[in-house]
Amino acid sequence: MSRVGPTLTALATGLILAMLALILGHVTVHGWSVVTWGFLSGGAEEGLFTVGRSGIFPMLFGTAARVILMTLLVIPAGVITAVYLNEYAPASGRLTRWVRGAVNHLAGVPSIVFGLFGLGFFIGFVGAGLDDWLRPGAVQPYWAGEGLLWASATLAVMTLPVVVVATEEALRAVPAGLREASLALGATRLQTIIRIVLPHSLSGILTGSILAIGRAAGEVVPLLFTGAALYVSRLPGSLNDKFMDLAYHVWVLCTQSPDIDQTKPLLYGTVLVLLGLTLSLNLVAVVIRARISRNPQATP
C-alpha cells in the first residue's frame, strides 16, 4: 500500500493534467488550419455558416466591447471596495465581515442567476426606469432592452469578487513600514493610498483585472438574456445595441448550424480562438502573480 497510494495520487494528478492537455491538443489540431487572417478579419456577410468565408471579426469585436465596458465598471468598484476593506475598515468590524461575506457569496452565485438578475434588474427595472424618465411617450423601448451596456454591467457584478480578492491580496502585501513612513511625513490617509499603496499594488490589481477579463470573456450564460445575438448585421455602435460574441458564437455553431458536420471547421476555429484568448489571459495572470510572490519588493 505504501507504494500504491502515492502512485495513485500521482496518477490522479496526471489524469487531470492530461484532460487539460487533451482539450488543448484536440482543439489545436483541428482548429489550427482554420484560424487564418481571413477567418479572424472576416465577417458574416455571406452568412454565419459558410466554411471558408464566414469569419469571426464581429464576434471578436463584440467580445472586446463588452469586456472593455465591463472592465471600466468593475475595476473602480472592485479596487475601491478592496481599499475600503484593507485601508479603512476595522478588521473585526461587523460591516467589514458583511462586505467580505457579500463578496464571497457573489463569487458563488451561479452564472444563470446573473442572467436572470441582468434581465430582471438592469433591463426590467433600471432600463425601464430610464425609459420612463428620459423618453416618456416613446413606444419602442430604448434602455429597457437587451444591449451592450446591460450585458457588461451584469458581467461586472459577476466579476467584482475576482477584482476585490486580487486587489486585497496585493494591498495586504504592501509593507506596513511604507504606509507609516508616508503618514509620518504628514501625508493624509488618502494621499498615502493614492501615492504609495496603490502604485505599490499595481501588479496585483492588474492580475485581478486580467483574471476578471479572462473569466468574463468565456462566459455565455449571462449574455443569453442581456445582449448577445445570434446575428446582427452591424457592429455595435451604441450602448443599447445587441452584439455578436465569440463565446456565444461557439454555442451558436454547436446548436444552430444547418449541417453540423460540414460547419465543424468554423466551430473548431472559433473554439481555438476563444480558448487561446482565455487561457493566455489566465497564463499572464499566473505569471504576474508568481513574480509578485517571489519578489514582493521589486514591484514599482
Binding site: A181, L185, G186, A187, T299
Partner: peptide, 25 residues
Amino acid sequence: GMVFQKANPFPKSIYENIAYGLRVR
C-alpha cells in the same frame, strides 16, 4: 517628523523620496 528603526525608503527614486513630504504639502 519620524525616522524608523528599519529604513523604509519608498520604492521610488532618491529624489522622489525626499520630495514626497513636500509634494503632499
